[in-house]
């Protein structure tokens, strides 16, 4: 233990005891009230040239999704909300889409990409999504030529009536990716699958 630390600690203890015994709070000057310290060095004040930054890195929008393990290589359509408040889905079964009111892939927050499991007559871009395994890599190409990579952490299948909006879309500052498609049994009366398959992936 350095001698300085013992001295400092004892002095601190003494000061603390005096404060406790006397009930005195540490004296803190009001802002603007303290006399400015006269500069001991005539050299220019280092802080005089300080400027705060007024820009931040803007992540480019995603344009392509690639999952080698599933043989997925698709352009990305931009998706918004429908009038009933549900999410838009891609216009074509073989093309995936990015929910543009949420974060861009690689930006802090959960980016969401949706794709069809099938068409009326055959497979869609996410036909094999429910078979993806944790650890699988997902690449998203962006409009500025950059690529961001994610690693699958989990897959879940849930009823559409109990869709976990919070876990898929709710804001955090973790740069994550969610892939969404349909799964489970098909309700022929409604012309719709009863479940959604959701893949969760973290930024690598």
């Amino acid at each position: 233990m350095p001698a300085y630390a013992r001295t400092a600690a004892l002095a601190g203890l003494t000061t603390a005891m005096i404060a406790v015994l006397t009930g005195a709070a540490p004296s803190v000057p009001r802002p603007g009230g303290a006399a400015p310290v006269a500069p001991s060095d005539p050299a220019p004040v280092e802080a005089d040239g300080f400027r705060s930054v007024r820009t931040y890195t803007v992540v480019a929008r995603p344009v392509r999704l690639r999952i080698r393990a599933l043989h997925v290589d698709s352009a990305l359509q931009r998706l918004g909300l429908q009038r009933d408040g549900t999410v838009e889905v891609p216009a074509r079964p073989e093309v995936a889409g990015w929910y543009e009111h949420g974060p861009r892939p690689g930006q802090p927050g959960p980016a969401v990409i949706l794709g069809h499991v099938d068409s009326r007559s055959g497979p869609g871009v996410f036909a094999q999504l429910s078979t993806v395994r944790p650890g699988t890599l997902i690449a998203v190409d962006r409009a500025d030529g950059s690529t961001v990579t994610f690693r699958v952490t989990g897959v879940s299948q849930t009823s559409k009536t109990a869709f976990p909006t919070d876990l898929v879309y709710a804001p955090t500052l973790d740069a994550t990716l969610r892939l969404v498609t349909c799964g489970g049994s098909f309700d022929r009366a409604r012309g719709s699958y009863r479940d959604n398959v959701i893949v969760f992936a973290d930024h690598v």
Partner: peptide, 26 residues
């Protein structure tokens, strides 16, 4: 912030299938 953003999130699940692979996915 979280409550404000949550109020505008999509409702319910996504209609991302048309039944062509119904026999497989089930």
């Amino acid at each position: 912030f979280g409550a404000t953003v949550a109020a505008r999130l999509p409702h319910g699940g996504a209609q991302t299938g048309y039944g062509g692979l119904a026999g497989v996915t089930e």
